[in-house]
Design a protein around this nucleic acid. Sequence first.
RNA 1: GGCCCCGUCGUCUAGCCUGGUCUAGGACACCUCCCUUUCACGGAGGUAACACGGGUUCGACUCCCGUCGGGGUCACCA
Length: 594
Amino acid sequence: MATTPATAPSATASTPTVVTRFAPSPSGHLHVGGARSALFCWAFARQHGGRMIVRIEDTDQKRSSDAASIGFLADLSWLGINWDEGPVHEGTGGGPHGPYFQSERLDIYNRCLQQLIDSGHAYYAFETPEELDTKRKAALAEKRAYRYDRAALLLSADQVAAKLAANMPAVVRFKCPGHAVTIHDQVLGDATIPAEEIDDFVIRKADGFPTYHFAVVVDDEFMQVTHVMRAQEHFTNTAKHMLLQDALGFRRPTYAHMSIICNPDGSKMSKRDKDKALRAAVKAKSTAQPQALSAAPIGPDGHPAVAQADWDRWLADKNVQLDFGSAARLAAALGVVLPEINVDDFRRSGYLPEVLCNFIALNGWSPGNDIEKFDNAFLAQHLRLERIQKTAAKFDRVKLLSFNTDAITGMPRESFIARARAHGEQFHAEFMRALPSGAFDRLAAASHERSKTLEDMFAGNAWAVASDDSPSITPDAKTIDKVLRKADPATGLSGLAHLENIAALLRSVPADQWTPEGLEPIITAYANEKAGWQMGKVAQPLRVALTGGTISPPIFDTLCTLPRERTLARLARVIEAAAGAAATAAAAGPTATA
RNA sequence: GGCCCCGUCGUCUAGCCUGGUCUAGGACACCUCCCUUUCACGGAGGUAACACGGGUUCGACUCCCGUCGGGGUCACCA
């Protein structure tokens, strides 16, 4: 380096600061593939003490670009991915290389564009999209790859000027130099794209906006990006970007293309997968009853799951996507489970952000040495571009769930309670309102070790916030028969008999002794004496009476979640109902009880 | 279809660059058993892969070629 001329930029610190960038198109939600790209960009920048930029690629005017369209910034924050430059969000963002919305950088693109035109590297073309489409289809029919025929190059300068003066719609195309391009990629290695594969692509659309290829190259240069890390779907595009860099006299950033994340069936994971699942279910239903298509199925609230207008539009066009609420209601009405695709879906489902990051990173990278559990700091420390997986990974939700379970059961109790409460406040306001804070903490503590997600705490404990006469906590006939009516051959006692005995015992327990610790000796003693030391014979009837089902936290906690009076009331209600049913059955004749 | 990339248990992956220590390791899932007041957790054990065919070599999961398979890309989308 001693021989470096004085004019070269900073000789000793010849390694420029690492700058990565996450450059999504505007969207309300971040999907897992994007999340991984962002995570790796973040980790690499942090590892090298560099900067990470978030840039919004909103050069497609057909897509909305209002504030809601960058809702994914909240997802990024939730995952713990912060950026040094980019849109301002919760205290981060801004920076000296803005604006960070491409739609606000038109003058920069136009300057570069003019440079390209002046130097003969780009030219105007006047074909309409329809004309091009026809030619493309013809080529396809002949099983030939379509390439732009450079017809516009035959136009004289005067002709071009005249068309432009007449305000004829025009695009600008890049004039490819006609040589093959070799991409050097940190994960994929070298790949050479033949010259014939790259035609004179459009760099500015008729509406004056740059195309993606052009904007990316210009922005990466002006924002001093050193490492381009993105999904493999962009790999072949890189050749175009390199040609553009050469023509513009730009640096060449380092490239690293990571594998795609797929569904279990091998198809590319996509935001449309939810609608796909819904369409499949609707189709199955309409095959059985064709009239089902005329309106959306009735949702859980008794109203059509989807508004008629939306329903019609959705049915008519496979590209139309349902909004979150409609999709969720329709899924409930059809009894299908929507696949989680977006980061926010996983958040709602009760996954921990650190687990999602860990798992996403593991789909496509591993540190070796059989290590698979790690946090973002570890990733930032150990990520090596060369170790990024070349092959596409199928996203295994079952394994994700297992990771989440481990993280939840492994955290301190207080942490779980706090996290569960935060999740509840965000997604289960009614649940939180129905349960006093102290009761919530006790229930959460009792539910900790059996929660695989934060959501389980709420889905599994709905009985705790139901009213005491709610149908949702009324045991069904099968359960009553099995748990309450059937007599234990060993003792001759039915569940109902135990229930009645326990209820009597419990009624004599004073309020200040109404705690899991206070109740346990009483019930244990009873079980030992009357149920042949089998707690299950006593616990299950109690559980059924209190929750309507056979699954709940440990029985003493379940007993103490509700106030004493309400617990007693639930017991009485079921005893009465079961006893009444038994009496009716007995009156109906001996066959009914056999 | 052209071009580019990829190919280890069902899945995520270790090993491959620097051939022998690989009778291929871990994790999730699955199966069996144990524990247990439900559900879950936990504990012990087990089934399970180098896509195929040629080379090179004393020796190939590891290097080379071909076949097959998968993915990506060929837009005035990004």
